[in-house]
């Protein structure tokens, strides 16, 4: 299962649960630490969506920062990439709290 197939599966399960049959637009939130390139996702989605309820649908991706707890300066900080230091103090002793999500937020459907 590729990530795009995961997205189409998610849309299919939502269609069953929320009673719609066609998806026109998808808003997808991507955490900065998720294992995915938004551009690759945009490129692949139309191909995987062909012949499904999401054929021809537009994909809008929103990249959001990850969050971590800095053990050095004891603050909650934003992280854009694993291996980046704390924006406050430069320490690498960061505990990742959030940022790996690839979450469907909203759909335009009929």
């Amino acid at each position: 299962m590729s990530l795009c197939e995961g997205l189409v599966q998610t849309l299919e399960s939502q269609a069953a649960a929320q009673h719609f049959s066609k998806v026109h637009k998808v808003w997808l939130e991507i955490g900065a630490l998720a294992t995915i390139e938004p551009e690759a996702m945009k490129f692949n989605f139309p191909i995987v969506a062909r012949g499904t309820l999401a054929e021809g649908a537009e994909l809008v991706t929103e990249l959001v920062d990850g969050e971590a707890w800095c053990l050095q300066c004891s603050t909650r900080v934003a992280v854009r990439r694993h291996g980046d230091g704390c924006p406050n103090c430069g320490s690498y002793q960061l505990q990742i709290l959030e940022g790996q999500q690839m979450r469907v937020k909203q759909l335009e459907v009929s």
Binding site: L3, G6, Q9, T10, Q18, F20, Q101, Q106, L107, E108
Partner: peptide
């Protein structure tokens, strides 16, 4: 328009 809160990795998970 419908609101959703679902991670696309949830099926694999």
């Amino acid at each position: 328009m419908v609101q959703v809160e679902q991670d696309i990795m949830s099926a694999n998970q």
